[in-house]
Design a protein around this nucleic acid. Structure first.
Lengths: 212, 212
DNA sequence: GCTGGGGGTGAGCAAGCGCTTAGGGTTGGG
DNA sequence: CCCAACCCTAAGCGCTTGCTCACCCCCAGC
């Protein structure tokens, strides 16, 4: 876990999707959805990007919405794993918060294309599929809240409103996917480090001074 | 300026749009775009919400995109006025930062429907119209940056990266439009106050302790 | 009471949409 | 050498889209 951080900490982002043709279609869909949004993307565009005819899509996926569902589920699962791994990891609450924010932000920056779809196309999912994904989101919220509560209990943090701060921290990190890489001014690691510092300050555990 | 804060500080959000029929269409479009997104909204839906036939829309607007452009321009102008008013107002850098974040967030929460369209449907605009709006966005960025720079120069703030922190502050505030009012747990004023406090902490001017 | 014109409608066009179906090329087992 | 299983495509179906056009209604001015 060192050089691959630039891709958000993943070596093979969609390695779990098989067969190969299905993966190519899914990657094409991620790019198209991220660029133009779900509703503005046509199945012909997705198939075209994958080098196939429009009909080929329906051999591997029942509908266009199933593609979004698969992308959203895999993406949210990955994001949740990052947060829970940090929340349940070793170290003080401050250590865990830094690691959570850092790795979560690195993923949203390094995998900005995927993250944009995952975070901003939720409403395009059907009723049932959206409900599934909302459950994963709640667990993301719970992981961050757990760290903040622990920090408050331990006297490490000074936070007047744990729920509100949880929301603000997640909101701040998620929005990275919207603006990242408009130019190449920062690397994912740099944004991750900066945001970890900002969030530490938000919970009253910041170190105004130490970092050069 | 007291009770009307719940609507984001505006008495008559679209009062500048005339004649009446054009305003009704525009308000219908804002609601539809906010609910389903620009691309998923049909001109029939907009006209229907305004109580008119599909053809009536084209008496007042040339295209569906012109509607979005009008909404986006008016909305961004309003948001920019809020930030510049705070940035160029009286008081210390900390005072101005608090006022900027507070009023900006109150608007994004109170006018969440409008703000969602303004902040998240930018890419749906045509090339030229988007370029216009991007200029307004840059001025928003400049206003916040001005406050932060002043605070650093005056020794009030301790901020390692002014550009990055400017981005983070704006990102945090803008994202309020995405999540606000999923339930009614906070009022716009409450979110505004909480966010102003969080941002003060981010710039190293927070007061961990004072507020109960 | 007639009239002219601005605000509105019903019907519909061309284009593009998600998705289906009949059929063709390639490959591995007998 | 055949053939069946597997992927994929060309063509196109039924529908919806943004938008247009011929027409109508209502009301102020003479």
């Amino acid at each position: 876990m060192s050089t691959a951080e630039e891709t958000g900490g993943e070596n093979m982002p969609w390695g779990e999707v098989t067969p190969d043709a299905a993966r190519r279609l899914l990657i094409a869909a991620v790019e198209a959805f991220a660029e133009r949004g779900y509703h503005a993307t046509t199945t012909r565009d997705i198939a075209g990007r994958a080098g196939m005819s429009p009909a080929a899509l329906y051999i591997h996926y029942k509908t266009k919405e199933e593609l979004l569902h698969k992308i959203s589920t895999i993406g949210h699962t990955k994001a949740l794993a990052i947060l829970e791994s940090a929340a349940d990891g070793p170290g003080s609450a401050a250590d865990r918060l830094v690691e959570a924010v850092r790795s979560f932000v690195v993923w949203h920056a390094g995998q900005a294309t995927t993250a944009r779809v995952v975070q901003y196309e939720l409403d395009a999912l059907g009723e049932e599929h959206r409900a599934e994904v909302v459950l994963l989101r709640r667990r993301c919220d719970a992981a961050v809240r757990r760290i903040l509560s622990d920090g408050v209990d331990a006297g490490e943090f000074e936070v007047p409103d744990v729920s509100g701060t949880t929301l603000a921290v997640l909101s701040l990190c998620i929005d990275v996917a919207r603006w990242f890489s408009l130019d190449g001014r920062w690397t994912p690691d740099e944004v991750g480090a900066m945001y970890a510092d900002l969030v530490l300050r938000m919970v009253g555990a910041g170190a105004p001074g130490p970092q050069n």
